[in-house]
Design a protein around this nucleic acid. Structure first.
Lengths: 335, 335
DNA sequence: GTGAAAGCGCTAACAA
DNA sequence: TTGTTAGCGCTTTCAC
């Protein structure tokens, strides 16, 4: 890389001091408009690029926000990332991202790496495995602000953003009940995750409030959401007594797999089995136009999380709100 | 943020010099194993985090790789990003990403921002709009290495990674011909993009080589891939003379939209209209198990691009290879 | 309104 | 093997 232009270069050419150049470049109030103009003109002409590394080092304040996601290739996370990116950019931050790949070790390494890069703060959604929170506690000790979203740890006291999982699950289950379905099953994920747990609770509460016999509800936990969904759906449909006439799926790919299974078994949706689920994937409308869903405002979640981080970056406030966003019920009737 | 531990802190506590600490920490060969051990132990105990900003500044060499993508929320790009991330991590780099959002202005701003962050190099896939390449030329002037992938600019002399669009299109068109389809149409994108152009050419070449009358081939250019696809498909199917019995789609969402249109018109796939296309979206298998596709090795593309960048970072070589990866033909028969 | 000087945390000659 | 010193490019007192 060729030696880049620095403020010293400009200062020398203009026969003024570095400090004046520095001030002029950031529109400091008390600097002569004339010199300010000269400086800016020369900077432009020389195609000067400020060295953000040096600036961060001097200010002890970086303009980078770190993000750790379990994976990129899922609509929810990539949408959330868009929201994050957007808010960060508007506030003068850039985003440095890492993928934990649903691997706890990597998640820990990533927090270290971001800390080393002296990011201003961190946004993260935990892996399915994360049960040990010492890496988060270490961030707190170092006073690196962070916000958790979607997959959050209840044990940790920090700002959080999630959707109203209980309410969403309750509502969509109620929808099935009102449609007259008698044997509603639930394909869930690991129940140690609060997100799955809350949906499970919402499901159960709706059944219970409708006077259904909770004990009879058939629920399968899919350890690895996508991988286990097909098999679980199959068990449900082949061995379930009675066979469910409706299935509530905890997330989009679980629903897609369930759909595939239903079709492979020669059953029809929704005549034989109705299918509903939480979802974010834009492909949903293609996959099955008949899938009634609770849509999660993925992008909004990302925006909100980033806004909270930015806020805590400026204000040093010690509040740790847990923002709960509503989901959107979308009924797609049979075609 | 509380004042973090620095190498000076360690040096003072151990009554040795900063440089020794620095050397010990990076396993410099000529440093006494004993002191090395002491230093590492204390660093560990104090939970020391090296300040990568300072290191980069001093070394004039950053450990960040910049990535600019048109959007995250598309399977192709998020898969490519995974590959990039993986290779970068393995080589000790972190990834700082920006979304150009298919907006040329943003793309330009992003290159400036990355340059300001003094990234070691840049990976990018251009927006659909990009027709002015001065921002790339500026990177070349500043000698910031970059690699283009997928959406590349033929005018710019730099390393590039794409798939074999011509060959893929040729092969999938040939497939349709061999199946006996007579009126094969093509839903394309902006033909000023080499990626679309090459697929178009492959399509035409296959028809021509099979002795078909090229002049009769019906082709629609969708300016905005996803947005215009439905309308174009509709025109093709309602107004096309003769009505196509097969459609080759330039990308996944174009194919999804075409499928939706075909179904809305009450036609069947593939009995009335066969559908084939380039694709990357894992949802394809759900959307239509009958869609025969050319799969692009998105992840591999990302990996390759990043490897090329890393290589040019170490070796200062002045080669600018254009790597062309093969696509994979996947025939999905009617269910 | 401008300049001089110190320093952010680290690296890398050059000495010792 | 270790210490000394001089930066990297920028910000920021504190003088003038």
């Amino acid at each position: 890389m060729r030696k880049p232009i620095t403020i010293s270069d400009i200062a020398i050419k203009l026969n003024i001091s570095k400090s004046t150049v520095s001030r002029a470049l950031k529109d400091h109030p008390d600097v002569n408009p004339a010199t300010k103009k000269k400086v800016k003109a020369l900077a432009e002409a020389l195609d000067y690029e400020p060295n953000l590394l040096a600036a961060s080092l001097a200010k002890k304040q970086s303009s980078l926000i770190g993000v750790i996601l379990p994976e990129f290739n899922r609509a929810f996370f990539s949408n959330a990332l868009e929201g994050i990116q957007e808010v960060a950019r508007r506030n003068g931050y850039s985003v440095i991202i890492c993928q934990s790949n649903e691997d706890f070790e990597l998640e820990v390494l990533n927090t270290r790496m971001l800390a080393s890069n002296k990011v201003a703060g961190i946004l993260m959604s935990l892996t399915l495995q994360t049960a040990d929170f010492r890496h988060l506690e270490r961030l707190q000790e170092k006073e690196i602000p962070f916000v958790l979203f979607d997959r959050v740890a209840e044990q940790i006291d920090c700002p959080k953003v999630t959707v109203d999982d209980f309410q969403g699950a309750y509502q969509i289950t109620q929808h099935l009940i009102s449609k007259g379905y008698q044997n509603i099953a639930h394909l869930s994920g690991p129940l140690n995750l609060s997100i799955c747990k809350n949906r499970y609770n919402g499901f159960m509460a709706a059944l219970s409030d409708a006077g259904r016999d909770i004990a009879k509800a058939q629920v399968y936990e899919c350890e690895h959401l996508k991988e286990d969904a097909y098999a679980s759906a199959k068990k449900l449909l082949q061995l379930g007594v009675p066979r469910p006439d409706a299935i509530f799926c905890v997330s989009d790919y679980v629903a897609f797999e369930a759909m595939r299974c239903i079709q492979d078994l020669g059953l029809r949706i929704p005549e034989d089995v109705a299918l509903v689920g939480f979802t974010n994937d834009p492909a949903t409308e293609y996959v099955t136009p008949r899938l009634t869903t609770m849509e999660q405002p993925a992008r909004k979640i990302g925006e909100t999380a980033c806004e909270m981080l930015v806020k805590s970056l400026k204000e040093e406030s010690d509040e740790h709100p847990h923002v709960i966003l509503p989901t959107t019920f979308i009924e797609r009737s049979s075609s």
